[in-house]
Amino acid sequence: MKKEWPLWEVFIRSQHGLAHKHVGSLHASDAEMAINHARDVYTRRNEGVSIWVVRSADVVASSPDEKAPLFEPANSKVYRHPTFFPMPEEIKHI
């Protein structure tokens, strides 16, 4: 018998209008317990207005071996970054 509870990934939205952000993981036997645990472990200091939990096993991740074909082609395409426009001096914070 497996004794450990399954692992869950926790996402917290800190303010309305912002996206949920991955904050960590925890163990729980099902979704309801995972929400309770996420509340107890990750929102103790007033961090959140909303919680998402996802079974870690359900997360589909890209393989580290595929790093080259997936990401390297973008490296050489600097023209995809909007950095070629002359900006007037007086415009700040862009």
């Binding site: 645990h37 107890d40 103790r44």
Partner: peptide
Amino acid sequence: PALEEDMALAN
């Protein structure tokens, strides 16, 4: 009995 329960009780 588990880290998560430990913190919940402390809360």
